[in-house]
Structures are given as C-alpha cells and as structure tokens.
C-alpha cells in the first residue's frame, strides 16, 4: 500500500494530537509524566492545563500550537515536532514559567519549589539564536518512515528562510532515549553535552537522571 506523507503547520484544530505529542514526548518512553510529578497533578489535570496554555498560543516555547509541524500519513496523524528560535520572543523557560504560573496558579507553582530546584540540576541552557526542537513524537505504527527527519528538516528550512543568520539547531533529550539519539544522529545531529544528576531522587520527577544536548550546524 502506498503511503502519502504530508507535512503541515499545526492549528488549533490539531490540539488533541499536540497534547498527545507533548505528553508522549515528555514521558520519553516511560510512564512518568514530569509535569504531574513536579506539580503534583494528575495526567487528566495536566491535559486540562495544557489545553488552556495551548489556547494562548504563546510562541517561543514548546507549549504552543503554532510552533508545531505535523506529519500526516494517508491523512492520519503520525508525528509532530515543535520548534522556535531561542530568545526571539524572550527566554523560553520564562515564557513557559509565565504560562504555568498563570494557569496552574502561583501557589501551586511555588508549592513545587523543591521539585523544581531538584530538576534544575539537569538544566541545560538553550543557546540564544539557535533553533530549538522539542516535543518530538511519532506514533508507534508510523515509526521507521523517517518522519522525524522530514519534520526536523522542514522546521530548519522554515527558520532559515525567515532568519538567514540562524546557524545552529539544538535538541535536548533524556540520555536514556537511545532510539531518539540514533534518529537525531541520522538527521545530522551530534552529541554536544551530557549532564548527569547527582541528586538521587531526581528520577521521581524526570524519566531519567541524565540529559543530552545534541546539535547540528546548519
């Protein structure tokens, strides 16, 4: 059976698939949803929160519908990736914090201070001016079709057309996500930095204790 692959810009009509993408990418092949663990909310509560944040479409961070490109295979949702250029709209971490603060509530956000401080150890700063690729997800039945590479190439091409000075793309992922690492290496990325936490209980909040920064010069 022939497959017709289409790449399209996400719109609010794709919100449910974007939510699935963000959650599955965040879980990184495990059952742990870091947002639930950090903010002490259920997955259903996070889905509701995420829906509200996505409605705002705040560009420059990963919880933003219009930052996503979607791959359809024969018209069916198959894969999605988000991207932005770091610093173009402000620091992505601050933009996301603003969104979480507003919709989760300051009290709930600040109640998670200890968890946030714990995961801070694994924070890898994003380079201002570099393309950031986040929330990379392909549904199981569509893996092996090269969809991630197609989406990454399309994201990079679109940013390059818009901002010719952009010269680098970055992906931050959990180090234990070996299949993703191989996929990104095939897409021309190389491992640039690895950070491992010394805090024992960090795996209560994140699906691993080590993060990887991969880069591609474009």
């Amino acid at each position: 059976m022939s497959r017709q692959i289409t790449i399209k810009q996400a719109t609010s009509a794709d919100k449910d698939f974007i939510i699935e993408t963000i959650i599955e990418a965040e879980k990184s092949g495990t059952d742990l949803l870091s947002y639930s663990a950090i903010f002490n909310i259920t997955e259903q509560e996070f889905i509701y929160l995420l829906g509200q944040i996505l409605e705002e479409d705040m560009i420059g961070q990963e919880l933003c519908v219009s930052g996503f490109l979607i791959a359809l295979v024969n018209g069916k949702y198959a894969a999605a990736i988000c991207s932005w250029v770091e610093g173009e709209e402000g620091l992505s971490s601050m933009l996301k914090a603003n969104a979480l603060m507003y919709f989760l509530g300051k009290e709930k956000f600040l109640a998670a201070a200890n968890a946030i401080k714990t995961i801070e150890e694994l924070n890898i700063p994003r380079e201002p001016g570099a393309i950031q690729l986040e929330s990379i997800y392909t549904k199981k039945e569509f893996r092996g079709l090269g969809l991630s590479k197609k989406l990454i190439d399309e994201h990079i091409n679109r940013h390059k057309l818009r901002l010719s000075a952009v010269s680098k793309a970055q992906i931050i992922l959990m180090q234990n996500n070996l299949s993703a690492t191989i996929t990104y290496e095939k897409a021309g990325f190389h491992k640039y930095l690895e950070k491992t936490a010394t805090t024992i209980n960090i795996e209560k909040f994140l699906p691993g204790n080590s993060k990887l920064l991969m880069e591609k010069i474009i």
Binding site: S93, M94, A97, M101, K106, L110, I116
Partner: peptide
C-alpha cells in the same frame, strides 16, 4: 533569575 525565582519575583 531562573523560572522558579521568576515566579517568586512576580509574586
């Protein structure tokens, strides 16, 4: 001045 202190500052 990170994401946590940002929220603390706004608060």
């Amino acid at each position: 001045w990170d994401s946590l202190t940002h929220v603390m500052l706004i608060d």
